[in-house]
Amino acid sequence: MPAHLPHGSRASAACLSPVPWVWPVPGCLSQGAISFQFARPAPPWPAMPPQAQPADAGRRVMLMSLTGLVLGCAVPLSGKRQSQSAWLRPPGAVPEEQFLARCVGCGACLSVCPTGALQPILSSSRLDALFSPQLVPRLGPCAPDCTACGGACFSGAIARFAVEHKPRLRIGVAVIDQARCLPWAEGQRCVVCVDACPPQCGAIQLRPIAPGQFRPVIEPSRCPGCGIREYRCPLPGQAAIRVVP
């Protein structure tokens, strides 16, 4: 089908391009015909509407952050308040709710702990407890002569204290798992925890139960929960003596 020419134009049959969307062919220029141009016919399908612009990724991140912030504030408020910590806090820590309100999770106390006993909480149903410090005695004990965490805390979550006052700062209390303790469970002689207990505490003693047989027992009122005995327990895995809040 011949291509349509503008009104008043002259072109020979040779100028008509066999390709319907190109007219006239370049050879027409040498014959004095009009200049050529490309003209594509309209597509047989309707024009597609422009695609919607993709949502701004930065906006999504901001909305997610705001949602997390709201949930982070709502969860602790809706959760049940507890006066006692579910974790072993550093010596000198203020009461639990005050501690959670003051601790900013900066990690200053973790970095100065000489035994590596202080570790961040990485999993908790309370979002305000995340990254706050807890004592993990199996990794390291709280050294009796150390006051570094109180000196490093700038938020007031851990009070400063003198080393002579430390025995009165309770972290927790040691308990003996008689099903795992070698003297209790198997009648074997083991005095590791007794020897490890600091002499200024004297919280663990050997109680005679039969001639030549002794069992370790804890005096809770004298135990500050330093974790030295749990750290020194020779059993693999979970120790037979553990510190609980």
Results as ranks from 00 to 15, higher is better:
residue 1 M to D: 13
residue 6 P to R: 12
residue 8 G to L: 14
residue 9 S to H: 12
residue 9 S to L: 12
residue 10 R to G: 01
residue 12 S to Y: 04
residue 17 S to M: 02
residue 19 V to K: 06
residue 23 W to D: 10
residue 23 W to F: 13
residue 24 P to E: 10
residue 24 P to N: 12
residue 28 C to Q: 04
residue 29 L to N: 07
residue 32 G to M: 03
residue 33 A to I: 00
residue 40 R to K: 02
residue 40 R to M: 05
residue 42 A to I: 09
residue 46 P to Q: 12
residue 47 A to Y: 01
residue 51 Q to P: 15
residue 51 Q to Y: 01
residue 52 A to L: 11
residue 52 A to D: 06
residue 58 G to Y: 02
residue 59 R to G: 09
residue 60 R to L: 15
residue 61 V to K: 12
residue 61 V to G: 05
residue 64 M to D: 06
residue 65 S to T: 15
residue 66 L to W: 06
residue 68 G to V: 12
residue 74 A to L: 15
residue 75 V to E: 01
residue 75 V to K: 00
residue 75 V to S: 03
residue 76 P to Q: 06
residue 77 L to N: 02
residue 77 L to I: 07
residue 78 S to C: 05
residue 79 G to H: 10
residue 79 G to P: 00
residue 79 G to K: 02
residue 80 K to D: 00
residue 81 R to L: 08
residue 84 Q to C: 01
residue 85 S to Y: 00
residue 88 L to M: 14
residue 88 L to S: 11
residue 90 P to M: 07
residue 90 P to G: 11
residue 91 P to F: 08
residue 91 P to Q: 08
residue 91 P to R: 11
residue 92 G to T: 09
residue 92 G to Y: 07
residue 92 G to C: 08
residue 93 A to W: 02
residue 93 A to F: 03
residue 94 V to L: 06
residue 94 V to I: 14
residue 97 E to T: 06
residue 101 A to P: 00
residue 102 R to E: 07
residue 113 C to R: 02
residue 114 P to K: 04
residue 114 P to S: 08
residue 115 T to H: 02
residue 115 T to W: 01
residue 115 T to I: 03
residue 115 T to A: 15
residue 116 G to Q: 10
residue 118 L to Y: 09
residue 119 Q to N: 10
residue 119 Q to G: 04
residue 119 Q to F: 02
residue 125 S to G: 13
residue 125 S to I: 03
residue 132 S to T: 15
residue 132 S to N: 07
residue 134 Q to I: 01
residue 134 Q to E: 15
residue 138 R to V: 15
residue 138 R to K: 14
residue 139 L to Y: 13
residue 141 P to I: 00
residue 142 C to L: 14
residue 142 C to A: 15
residue 143 A to G: 04
residue 145 D to G: 05
residue 146 C to R: 07
residue 147 T to M: 08
residue 151 G to C: 00
residue 151 G to A: 11
residue 153 C to A: 04
residue 154 F to M: 09
residue 155 S to F: 12
residue 156 G to F: 05
residue 157 A to W: 03
residue 161 F to V: 04
residue 163 V to N: 03
residue 164 E to A: 15
residue 165 H to W: 01
residue 166 K to S: 10
residue 167 P to F: 06
residue 168 R to G: 14
residue 171 I to W: 01
residue 171 I to N: 08
residue 172 G to L: 04
residue 175 V to C: 03
residue 181 C to R: 05
residue 181 C to E: 06
residue 185 A to T: 04
residue 189 R to L: 14
residue 191 V to H: 06
residue 192 V to P: 00
residue 196 A to T: 15
residue 199 P to M: 04
residue 201 C to A: 09
residue 201 C to T: 12
residue 203 A to M: 05
residue 204 I to C: 02
residue 204 I to R: 07
residue 206 L to P: 02
residue 211 P to K: 05
residue 212 G to V: 05
residue 212 G to Q: 08
residue 212 G to H: 08
residue 212 G to A: 10
residue 213 Q to A: 10
residue 213 Q to H: 13
residue 216 P to N: 02
residue 218 I to F: 01
residue 219 E to N: 11
residue 220 P to M: 02
residue 221 S to E: 15
residue 221 S to F: 03
residue 223 C to Y: 06
residue 225 G to W: 04
residue 226 C to F: 12
residue 226 C to N: 12
residue 227 G to L: 11
residue 227 G to N: 12
residue 229 R to Q: 07
residue 230 E to A: 07
residue 232 R to E: 14
residue 233 C to K: 10
residue 235 L to E: 10
residue 236 P to H: 07
residue 237 G to M: 09
residue 238 Q to W: 00
residue 241 I to G: 05
